[in-house]
Design a protein around this nucleic acid. Structure first.
Lengths: 217, 217
DNA sequence: GTCTATAAATAGATAGAC
DNA sequence: GTCTATCTATTTATAGAC
């Protein structure tokens, strides 16, 4: 699926990937508008003109990053949804994969949150399709479980965001919590990936459990 | 608490509030960095120089908006937490108040989400204290319920974000869902305030219910 | 592929008249 | 309080040498 980049024979090693990595850092830390091409170039240790040699514009560089980031996670989730597992097991696996993806990339959530806040104005149909795919996969498993009467008659849209909302907001707000902890003397608390996964799976189990009779565990 | 503005005797009516309203629209729609003082001036139908007469800088205008927005909700939540109610009733009331606040302001969530994503770099101690107050109030009710054994032994930080995360992400993502619905033919679904409140209260009740014996309702 | 130099547009902010 | 005009710095993007 990933089209191999034809690197010119005389290319310096990794220039393009250094640009991508630096841009990811900058966009993740500051957002699209506040990020300057100058800073990306400086961080990547290349001249600014190099960025325009490899990418047609600041926006094209940004969408390239979004496509790579969200393409990976969309694929992983899709793989889970198509496995022959119970709806409960798929939910657990989706949660584990989402937490690992979020905890594996410092920039995944900041970029995601800003696109949500911006109404995805920086994204084209291709990137929007990836986000739609993520949404569709999670939602599909919930609908499947409800149809099979394994889950209670919950609104799929609300159940969907009850799965991802706590993860997204808790992990994304860590820097703000850290500022609050130091300047306001209020420690809200941190948890490791394993604890977070267990909590989200507990919430999902309780939320989705049918009205009568407890969930099977 | 709100210091009354001394309007100069000859002031045109509402200039300052038109600026605040226009700035709220612009910051909410585009974020701090992408918003220009020119656009705010145009929307408020005042000259750009007027903005600098009323506010010392773009940043000061922004923080004034944040203080007003988050000050109001912080007060409302605090009022609930100090009432003589059971922890369960306080949770229900907090949820209802939060949903109504979110649904009552088009710009509340976009601004909040971007500050989360940015690590609150645009906020000073005063604005940070307001956000800390919101966090502290919600968290305090959870800790209270756990201490009274009315809630199960849940991690307060995780329970906290399980309450607000679904609300924030579901409502904030409505514009993106709308784009997905029209361009990707995927309808994830919308709900009214009442349905959203009921769902969040259901999730809270199930999440917090003690291990043995159902919640009292 | 990589660089220097610069174009062209736009940003935040201010001076000063009224 | 409100406006016109402008300053200064910064930004995206490109031309052209090597």
């Amino acid at each position: 699926m990933v089209r191999p980049r034809r690197a010119a024979p005389t290319a310096l090693p990794g220039t393009r990937s250094r640009i991508l990595s630096a841009a990811c850092d900058e966009f993740g830390a500051r957002g699209f508008a506040a990020t300057t091409v100058d800073r990306i170039a400086g961080r990547a240790r290349v001249n600014k003109a190099m960025i325009y040699y490899h990418f047609s514009s600041k926006a094209a560089l940004y969408t390239a990053i979004v496509r790579e980031m969200y393409g990976q996670i969309a694929e992983q989730l899709q793989a889970i949804a198509t496995q022959p597992l119970s709806a409960e097991a798929k939910i657990d696996a989706l949660i584990e994969t989402l937490v690992n993806a979020v905890d594996g990339s410092r920039h995944f959530l900041p970029i995601f949150l800003r696109e949500i806040a911006d109404g995805a104005v920086h994204l084209g149909p291709a990137e929007l399709a990836l986000i739609a795919g993520i949404f569709s996969t999670v939602r599909g498993v919930i609908v499947e479980g409800v149809r099979q009467r394994r889950f209670q008659q919950v609104n799929p849209a609300l159940a969907h965001f009850t799965l991802i909302g706590p993860l997204v907001m808790f992990r994304a707000s860590a820097p703000v919590r850290e500022r609050i902890r130091t300047t306001q003397r209020l420690d809200i608390g941190e948890v490791d990936s394993r604890t977070l996964i267990a909590h989200l799976q507990m919430v999902a189990r309780r939320m989705l459990a049918p009205e009568e009779g407890p969930a099977k565990d």
